[in-house]
Amino acid sequence: METCIKKASVKQQLSDVLLDISWAKISQKYFGKSSSWMYHKLDGIDGNGKPIEFTHEEKEQLRGGLLDMSERIRRAAESIK
């Protein structure tokens, strides 16, 4: 019997912080793309209703952007005296 294991989508992987982040700002700052581009990627459906995914390179870029933001947030939090 063949077992089918479905990998969690990027949106599922980000579920803990999904509502706390401005994805429009991330799209603009780290990708130079529109907010609709990011929302389509997160939803897995393009503007025409066809399936779409982040490429490996885009996933790495998103990972880097989130790590950059986390470092900036940490520095801001540490600056509070």
Rank of each mutant, 00 (worst) to 15 (best):
L66M: 13
D46P: 05
L14N: 01
K11H: 11
S9H: 03
K50L: 09
F54N: 05
D20Q: 11
I21Y: 04
Q28P: 00
E78F: 07
E71T: 14
M69R: 07
Y39A: 06
K81F: 12
I52R: 10
Q28C: 03
A8W: 13
K25I: 11
K6N: 13
L62S: 02
H56G: 08
I45E: 01
G49C: 04
K59C: 11
Y30R: 04
E60S: 07
R63D: 11
L19A: 10
D43I: 03
S79D: 09
L62Q: 03
D68E: 09
I26K: 01
D46M: 04
K50W: 05
K59N: 09
D16K: 15
R63L: 13
S34R: 08
G32P: 05
S22T: 05
N48A: 10
M1W: 08
I26F: 02
W37C: 00
L67S: 10
M69Y: 08
E57K: 12
D46E: 00
K29L: 11
I52Q: 09
G49L: 03
R72H: 08
D68R: 09
Y30G: 03
L19R: 13
I45S: 07
S34E: 10
T3Y: 15
S79W: 02
G49R: 03
K81S: 12
E78N: 11
L67F: 06
K25R: 15
A76G: 08
A24T: 12
D46V: 01
S34V: 06
Q61P: 02
G64A: 07
E60T: 04
R72E: 07
K11S: 14
Q61H: 07
E60C: 04
E57P: 03
A24Y: 06
V10G: 04
I80V: 14
A76M: 12
G47I: 05
W23R: 08
I26L: 06
L19F: 10
I73D: 03
L62M: 07
L18K: 05
L67T: 04
V10T: 10
R75K: 15
C4W: 10
S22R: 02
Q28Y: 09
L19K: 13
D68T: 13
E60K: 10
A76R: 15
F31P: 04
G49N: 03
C4D: 09
A8P: 07
L67N: 09
R74K: 14
K81A: 12
M1P: 09
K50S: 10
W37R: 00
I80Y: 14
S70T: 13
E57R: 12
S36D: 09
R74T: 11
W23E: 01
R63F: 15
V17F: 11
K33C: 06
L14H: 03
G64R: 10
S70P: 01
G65F: 05
Q12K: 15
Q13F: 05
K41Q: 04
G49Y: 00
L66V: 08
K59V: 07
T55S: 14
K6G: 06
I5D: 08
K29R: 15
T55H: 02
K81C: 07
L42I: 01
E58G: 03
R63V: 05
M69C: 11
G47L: 08
T3M: 13
A77G: 07
I5W: 13
K41E: 00
K6C: 11
L67M: 12
C4L: 15
E57C: 02
G44Q: 07
S70Y: 11
K25D: 14
D16M: 11
E78D: 06
Y30W: 08
E2K: 15
Q12M: 12
K41P: 02
H40C: 12
E60H: 07
V10I: 14
V17P: 03
